[in-house]
Design a binder for these strands. Sequence first.
RNA 1: GGCCCGUUCGUCUAGGGGUUAGGACAGGAGAUUUUCAUUCUUCAAACAGGGGUUCGAUUCCCCUACGGGCUACCA
Length: 506
Amino acid sequence: MSDKKVRVRFAPSPTGGLHLGGVRTVLFNYLFAKKHGGDFVLRIEDTDQTRYVDGAEQYIMDCLKWCGLTPDESPLVGGPFAPYRQSERKPLYREYAERLVENGHAYYAFDTSEELEQKRKDVPNFQYGHAYRHEMRNSLSLPLHEVEKLLHDGTPHVIRIKMPEDETIGFDDMIRGHVTFDSNLVDDKVLLKADGMPTYHLAVVVDDHLMKITHAFRGEEWLPSAPVHILLWKVLGWEAEMPAWAHLPLILKPDGHGKLSKRDGARLGFPVYAMNWQDNKTGELTPGFRELGFLPEAFLNLLAMLGWNDGTDQEIFSLDELIEKFSIDRISKAGAKFDFEKAKWYNAEWIKKSEAESLKLKVWEILKSKGIVIKDEAYLLKVIDLVKERCVLLEDFYQQSAYFFQQPAEYDLNAVKPKWTDAKTDFFNAFISILSSPETFDAAELETRFKALAEEKGLKAGDVMLPFRIMLVGGKFGPHVFDIAKLLGESEAIIRIEKALEAFNA
RNA sequence: GGCCCGUUCGUCUAGGGGUUAGGACAGGAGAUUUUCAUUCUUCAAACAGGGGUUCGAUUCCCCUACGGGCUACCA
């Protein structure tokens, strides 16, 4: 295993939006692959035709693209083990299932779903396994000629694995250590469905083998079916090449209990999907981190820290750092409750840390969507640098920087009017004269002049500072007021002061 | 119910036979910023319980409790 090239896969089923837990699985796969110079493959597990959702596959690929977790092989780019969609590999699985029937490790079962339902009703804790399979209609219980007839007549049937009796099935999980199961307690899972499609159990083993997967990461919810997969690797004769397994801890609801679902997001007011997902049947829109204003760097960062750390106090990691520092033995075993407040903190950190240049396009789009047209890119960059430290979500750039591009539509008059005096009007008229002088000042000089003038007029600087801010911004927020004035420019500042004076004196 | 996995501050976690059990988010207090945010300082806050093993357990073992997952011709 150590001399083989590392190959990992993410194998989602295209049934809807991509959950943040799914993205974390992708991330750990990706980090591990890249750390070891391996390949990351995307395989679409679309074996359930009833749950197939149009557009979901494209959506998944778009999510990976947004996150920057590009697969080396996928349905889109192809690869040496194509096709990467299980529905397109359909004929292949039957062959292996039949081979197992021949070996005696699997059998045909003709029970209808009604019969199964009835049996489950009659027998408490019914399991289709060694205890009951002889009471069912299958090639183990029926005489050979009858089985042949049923088969010949094209009777709908499935192929089930025949779990052995009294065996301990165990394996070494990279996260949990040695895990064992009693084969008597594992049921005869369906391998091939009546429609000829494989179930996950068969498909995952066959494809992991054929695609030469060396390390398999998946959520902890798969642990109970691991013995089926382990056994399959064995009876198919591929035991020596079985990938090393890693069952990742689950991401849990912030409140209450259980694993995080998209319903929790709706209920608690935060996204669960990576990007917006629109169900084209119901029209229901499930919000995503991207649209809510998360940076992909922050999204990945916060996901990585949900169940992993590098052993130091470092919290902020770039993707490259994660690749460098990732290691499976630092993944925690216990599930982690998702904390949206902390998620936002990661985003704020990443916005602060980002260069204006890299934020430019995103901010430009946000402002544009609000009707603000930007003609001067250099100006936009300066604005971003000035306000980015007060933005938690990208959308905050609108509120924090709109006034740099348009005059305030309204003023926070309550903050000004009660204390407004003619002396203040006088002060601002005098300040306009300073601004209109041919001399130019930097922000600090402007502040000095402003304060000197205030003193000269017998006013406290503090008494005119806030009104000045309201004049330029409209409200009680934003960066240092002289930085704003300077960036706006003298003539624009004059226009705003004059306009505001009218409102204040009205 | 059965099986499997897990359990350190409210949350994410570090640590590990002898520590003042560390950090981060959130919360409290304060400083700076004559707005707000940032930043800084500071406070409060945890080893689920019981048995072992040991000179000594939060750390190792067992049991209990609790939590979670699975128990489909879904993944």
